[in-house]
Each structure stands twice: as C-alpha cells, then as structure tokens.
C-alpha cells in the first residue's frame, strides 16, 4: 500500500518535472509561444531564444555606422504606408501570408539576405524598384507582387478610371494593382534605408500605399528579441 502510494507520487512528480522542463519560459506574448510559417516548402517555427543569459554578438550588436548613408530612418516610410512591429508580423504570417494574399519582402541586397533572413520572407532587393519600367526583371517581380503591366488603355477608359470608376483607384497608366498583394517590407532596422527606398520605388510605380506595411525594426529588432532567423542557403 505504502509502496504503491510512493510510486504514484514519484510518477506524478516526474510528470510535473517533465512538463515544466518542456515549458517555454520566453514566449512571444503571454498567450503565444510560437508562430509557424511556410518558407520554401518547409514549416518553420518562429520562437525566441530560450537562454535568458543570451546576449547579442556579431553584426547586429554593432551600434554605430557611418551616416550618411546609415542614418536613422523616420517612423513613416511614405504617405499612407503603415508602420508595424513584430506582433503585427505574427498576425500577418497566420493570415494573409498563409493564404497567399500577402508577402513579406526582405528588401536588402542579396549579400545581406544570404547571411540570414526572417522566415517566410522572399528577397526582392530595393534596387529592383528603381529599374526602368520596361525592364523584364521589374515586370517579373511586380507579377510576383500581384501587379499586372497594362497594355494600351483607351483615353476614354482611362478618363473614367481617373474619376474613380471601373476600379480606377487601383490602376495607373502602366499597372493594374487590382490583385496586388499586401506587403510587409523590411530591411536591417532603424538605421537601414533599403526598405524605405523600396517603398519609395513602389509608391512611385503607383503601388497602393494601403497595401504596404513597413517593418521599421527590421533584422536589428528581430534579432534583439531572439526571434528565429534562417540562413537561406542552409534551407
């Protein structure tokens, strides 16, 4: 009788110990431990580094870079463009990104992308958005974003569109943004001008501002929170 009771208490204690060992202490939010995202046909779990003594080392521990060009960026990247932070990204990953209605764009040059990116992102360097309007690379990239290059548009149709009819608010002379995806655009953080340049380029092309979100914290803040980073080549 005593033995059985002792055994039961031992099993119970073991279970409590095992469950506490598996518990995540460093959550994303009080009610969210992780977010899963699809990156190149793989499900990646985004969570925070669990070692509470961890300190950032390496490139993103650096505080000072020459300005210009590495100057502190304003909060707003363009008129009508919303600036967001991590929690909005998590929500976006579980909604628009999941169902293909949105994209997360790492607007940095490939040299940065190759050294680590936010899971779920695709790389479209900011330089693409300042290419000539007929450049095949720009047209291909815009297609990925859901924007279509328009052919000849009759003057009458265009005049009607400009009056806000026939979906005109989502069309320019050159592009049709009717099926344009919602975008989160980011780069290295508050000192990085690459995503603001990409956003500027997109706005100049006529991309609807309400479909662009700017993650100003970028890789700097992402890493300072210990969030999962992936190296594309290792995938």
């Amino acid at each position: 009788m005593g033995n059985r009771m002792f055994r039961n208490i031992f099993i119970l204690c073991s279970l409590v110990w095992i469950s506490s060992a598996n518990a995540i202490d460093v959550k994303l939010t009080s009610d969210r431990e992780f977010v899963e995202v699809i990156h190149k046909d793989k499900l990646i779990k985004i969570q925070r580094i669990q070692d509470q003594d961890h300190r950032l080392e390496g490139g993103f521990a650096k505080t000072s870079r020459k300005c210009p060009p590495f100057c502190i960026q304003p909060m707003d990247a363009g008129e009508g463009v919303k600036t967001i932070a991590q929690l909005e990204i998590f929500d976006f990953m579980e909604t628009e990104l999941l169902d293909g209605d949105g994209l997360i764009i790492d607007a940095r040059t490939p040299a940065w992308w190759n050294r680590g990116t936010i899971p779920g992102s695709i790389n479209i360097p900011f330089t693409v958005f300042s290419l000539d309007i007929d450049d095949p690379l720009l047209i291909d990239m815009m297609k990925i974003l859901g924007a279509k290059r328009r052919g000849e548009v009759g003057g009458f149709s265009r005049a009607i569109e400009e009056m806000g009819m026939m979906g005109g608010e989502l069309k320019t002379d050159e592009w049709d943004f009717t099926s344009a995806k919602k975008l989160i655009i980011w780069c290295n953080g508050m000192w990085c001008g690459q995503s603001p340049r990409a956003i500027k380029g997109l706005l100049e092309l006529g991309y609807p501002a309400k479909k662009i979100l700017y993650y100003r914290g970028g890789m700097q803040v992402w890493q300072s929170l210990g969030l999962t980073v992936i190296v594309p080549d290792d995938m």
Binding site: H39, K42, L43, I44, K45, I46, Q47, I49, D51, H54, L56, E57, G58, G59, F60, A61, W112, R115, G116, Q223, G226, T228, V229, I230, V231, D234
Partner: peptide, 16 residues
C-alpha cells in the same frame, strides 16, 4: 556581418 552563434543554433534547433 556574422550571425550571432546562438541565433544560428536557434535556427538549427528550430523544428522545421
């Protein structure tokens, strides 16, 4: 730029 060691480890440990 070098990725912080633990950030890299985090990637390897992250179940995918």
């Amino acid at each position: 730029l070098n990725l912080d060691d633990q950030t890299k480890d985090g990637q390897k440990k992250t179940p995918s």
